[in-house]
Design a protein around this nucleic acid. Structure first.
Length: 857
RNA sequence: GCCGACGUGGUGGAAUUGGUAGACACAGUUGAUUCAAAAUCAACCGCCUUCGGGUGUAUGGGUUCGAGUCCCAUCGUCGGUACCA
């Protein structure tokens, strides 16, 4: 098939040229060619996991956007950091290894190479010298080094920041005490264990793997955790300064889930152990609950504790014991998902024990039910059925009294209101009553103000082969853990041939006996880190990727941080990372900031989420539906520039939109027209440079107006990431060039400017044309053109004439005509006369240079 | 359920602070060129119409000289979340 323009000849040529000449090399402070007077700009893509499937057309969407920004910012005089790398640890390579025996490193290398080749074929201006790969030993070394920073730090409550645990040693704390405070700590708790994956999963990952058909069950295991909860408040507060979509900020806030309220202590009445509750007198202990509605305490008519609550056995009376035990067992079998689905029908059992409502002294029953979770708050609640939907359902089902304490039209009523039936709170508003009740609780030592977060500590260990091993050791004698010396880093996985899960919750590394046995005294930790570890700090490594002494040099850190409170100026990627990756990376960044290793408190200043690209059928692209579009095919047929242009022309970057391959025809035609302005085919079908060039600057007002409007619009649109409208403006401008060229030949100076504007979008074609028309400097090394407002001034304006808001006529008038003249002219038109002659003119609104609206009736 | 985003031609989408709705494209129709086709070029292209105009941005109200844009209600689509007390 004949190409509309010979992209197949020049695209790979330019890619080779850029590569050989390191055209897009970014200089660090101290490097040759570093210019300290240039401001820095750091524009980052979310690096991909190099899967075996290769790229689909969704990948280049964000990448093209950032590439345009990077190229534009270079032209605007910035020293631009625009890197790419590979998030290459991950389960698919390991599972492939289990199936085929091929080492994950081999699979990963092949996939990475393929991804890189595909990306390079699109002509992105990455500085490939800065490429990082999370599986490289040099990279693993620093991931582990940062982990050790977490391990060797604790959260100082007074300073509200991380500090080295050495401070605690100096204070004389024992190692056991210190271990309880470390930011990386072990914890034995029910976790999500997947027998067929042979690993533990984070809560957030469970659904994803279940959807892929794997089983996940609850099982108590000792795991490594990271103390992200200490940062909950800062992770919320520091969102304020970030230039992120409000919806993403909200997503993170909801995930962290801050609730303000109070804890309340309820005295438990009855017996501990054997004797029935009715026999006992007085208090036998207390149960603490968390509530966001202390104002409704007078309405608490029963209590519920989670089935896993440690006090369940103690307080249950003999009469109820069998039923409670049976209920508890049922809960263990139910997965979280099933528990969630049951929420239409509440279940539970009375324990037979009673508690005393501290507000009114009433004796209320204590129930167990799985609608109360052990993992949140205290694992126990005061139930106020009148003002909580769940408590209401439960009380209805089990015929528990419902006491209304907020003036309400109907129950359950969960809104704010005026307090009733509540003793000293009566007549107060909800907010006032909350405050007064908390004061009362604190004075009478029956509770206190309390803030709770939904966020849990981060389950950080995995039982996998293909991940960073923890650089930790266990003392065979004492059973205590310690870290390997820094000189041991990186701690790499042992070479293994059998990757199958063993069923041993310590993971596949237990099979490498020599490796585990570190010394006579120590044995190695066999857990590995989750895939998030590498992606938590890769943006830091790009700043100084080959440093063997430090994870990032102070000088590079200082330079690429700039003067801002966040390091990366623009971060573009998919919404699927709105919560996890972005929260984890922020957490690590803050720890490193606290320890004085970074000068910014946040990693990503501006965040943009590109919208998903759907298949042509409007469904999400997937192999099973068979609607995946491969960019290689598009490049082959239309060229890389057309692919880039179409990716951006489809619509707003942040919007979800379907791919339409024949839409590529439109942008391809546009590029072909640009090409044919300077080039034509001879009899043999070969392309030849035209000869009708106009060397001197043109004075054609229409052409100059179109050009300068385009300079302005394209620049503004790139700044706003509105690439689709920038392209349409260039399409409009091209038409002016075409008309002018027919009459006068191609105006080289103005055409060069046009190529300059198009260059960030279509770098191959524009560089080739620039060379063809005789320019010998690269467009990519030129300054972004400036526009001249005076060239854009319109001498004539089209004035809209409306009668009662409806368009009736247009007037061509000189710009700047006075209101009075416009009104007079408008009233004089035949159209206005015919629509007003049977009416009275009430009012005339005149907006100079725009419109006249005549109000008549 | 709750939270959030969004509803504009056959399709993707344009439309500064409220001021010509449908830019720019795709698809379609007609014509030119061609032996023919592709490619290219030109014209048309929301709906209705008695060709004056009427109507139209999910639906129904409202504010305004004027609403796709602002306000209220309803419906729908998508995303997040799921007993978080």
């Amino acid at each position: 098939m004949r190409k509309p323009f010979p992209f197949d000849e020049f695209e790979s040529k330019w890619q080779t040229y850029w590569d050989k000449n390191q055209t897009y090399r970014t200089a660090n402070p101290g490097d040759e060619g570093f210019d300290a007077t240039k401001p820095k700009y750091y524009v980052l893509d979310m690096f991909p996991y190099p899967s075996g499937a290769g790229l689909h057309v969704g990948h280049p969407e964000g990448y093209t956007a950032t590439d345009i920004i990077a190229r534009y910012k270079r032209m605007k005089g910035f020293n631009v950091l625009h890197p790419m790398g590979w998030d290459a640890f991950g389960l698919p390579a390991e599972q492939y290894a289990i199936k085929t025996g091929q080492h994950p490193r081999i699979t990963t290398e092949a996939n990475t190479e393929n991804f890189k080749k595909q990306l390079q074929a699109i002509g992105f201006s990455y500085d490939w010298e800065r490429e990082v790969n999370t599986t490289d030993p040099d990279y693993v070394k620093w991931t582990q080094w940062i982990f050790l920073k977490l391990y060797n730090s604790y959260y100082c409550e007074e300073a509200q920041q991380a500090r080295p645990v050495s401070e605690l040693e100096e204070k004389g704390m024992t190692s056991k005490e210190i271990d309880k405070l470390r930011l990386a700590f072990t914890h034995e708790a029910p976790v999500n264990w997947s027998p067929d994956l042979g690993t533990v999963l984070a809560n957030e990952e469970v659904d994803e793997w279940k959807a892929k058909g794997h089983t996940v069950e609850r099982r108590p295991l000792r795991q490594w955790m990271l103390r992200i909860t200490k940062y909950a408040q800062r992770l919320i507060d520091d969102l304020d300064d970030l230039d992120w979509p409000e919806s993403i900020k909200l997503l993170q806030k909801n995930w962290i889930g801050k609730s303000e309220g109070a804890t309340v202590k309820f005295e438990v009445q009855g017996s501990v152990g054997a004797s029935p509750a009715s026999d006992a007198e007085g208090s036998v202990g207390e149960i603490e609950v968390f509530t966001t509605r202390p104002d409704t305490l007078f309405g608490a008519t029963y209590m519920v504790i989670a089935p896993e609550h440690p006090l369940v056995n103690e307080i249950t009376t003999p009469d109820n014991k069998d039923a409670v035990e049976a209920y508890k067992e049922g809960c263990v079998l139910k997965s979280d998902l099933e528990r969630g689905e049951m929420n239409k029908d509440k279940t539970g059992e009375p324990t037979g024990a009673f508690a005393i409502n501290p507000a009114n002294g009433e004796r209320i029953p204590i129930w167990i039910s799985d609608y109360v979770m052990m993992g949140y708050g205290t694992g126990a609640i005061m139930a106020v059925p009148a003002h909580d939907v769940r408590d209401f359902e439960f009380a209805k089902k089990f015929n528990i009294p419902i006491q209304c304490v907020v003036g309400a039209p109907a129950l359950p009523y969960t809104e704010q209101g005026v307090v009733v039936n509540s003793g000293f709170l009566n007549g107060l508003s909800t907010a006032e009553a909350k405050a007064k009740m908390i004061d009362w609780l604190e004075e009478s030592e029956k509770g206190s103000r309390q803030i709770n977060f939904k966020l849990r500590d981060w389950l950080f260990s995995r039982q996998r082969y293909w991940g960073e091993p923890f650089p930790l050791l266990w003392d065979k004698e004492t059973g205590e853990h310690t870290c390997v010396p820094e000189s041991d880093l990186p701690v790499l996985q042992p070479e293994m041939e059998d990757f199958k899960p063993t069923g041993d919750p310590r993971g596949p590394l237990v099979k490498a006996e020599n490796w585990i046995n570190y010394s006579d005294q120590y044995t190695r930790e066999t857990n590995t880190m989750p895939q998030w570890a590498g992606s938590c700090w890769y943006y830091l490594r790009y700043c100084d990727p080959r440093n063997t002494e430090r994870f990032i040099s102070e000088q590079a850190e200082d330079y690429w941080s700039g003067d801002d409170s966040a390091m990366v100026d623009l971060y573009v990627g998919g919404t699927e990372h709105a919560v996890l990756h972005l929260l984890y990376a922020r957490f690590w960044h803050k720890v490193l900031f606290d320890l004085g290793l970074l000068s910014t408190k946040e990693p990503f200043k501006k965040l943009v989420n590109q919208g998903l690209i759907l298949g042509e059928d409007g469904n999400k692209m997937s192999k099973s539906i068979g609607n995946v579009v491969n960019p290689d095919d598009i490049i082959k047929e239309y060229g890389a520039d057309s692919l880039r242009l179409y990716e951006m022309f489809m619509g707003p970057l942040e919007q979800v939109k379907p791919w339409q391959t024949n839409g590529v025809d439109g942008v391809s035609r546009f590029l072909a027209k640009v090409w044919r302005l300077a080039s034509e085919q001879n009899q043999e079908g070969e392309w030849e440079v035209k000869t009708n060039f106009q060397n001197e600057a043109t004075s054609d007002k229409d052409l100059l107006k179109a050009l300068h409007q385009t300079i302005k619009k394209v620049g503004e649109d790139i700044e706003n990431l509105a690439f689709n409208t920038a392209i349409s403006q260039m399409m409009v401008c091209l038409k002016t060039f075409q008309d002018y060229e027919k009459e006068n030949g191609l105006p080289l100076q103005e055409f060069t400017i046009f190529l300059q504007l198009l260059n960030p979008f279509a770098p191959h074609l524009t560089e080739e044309l620039n060379k063809l028309i005789g320019n010998d400097t690269l467009l990519s090394s030129q300054d972004w053109p400036a526009f001249d407002e005076s060239k854009m001034v319109e001498s004539e304006k089209t004035i809209i004439v409306q009668v009662n808001g409806k368009l009736r006529a247009r007037l061509q008038v000189p710009a700047g005509m006075s209101k009075e003249d416009l009104e007079e002219m408008a009233l004089a038109t035949n159209e206005v006369k015919s629509f007003t002659d049977d009416k009275t003119i009430r009012k005339v609104i005149v907006i100079p240079n725009k419109l006249v609206n005549i109000v008549a009736n």
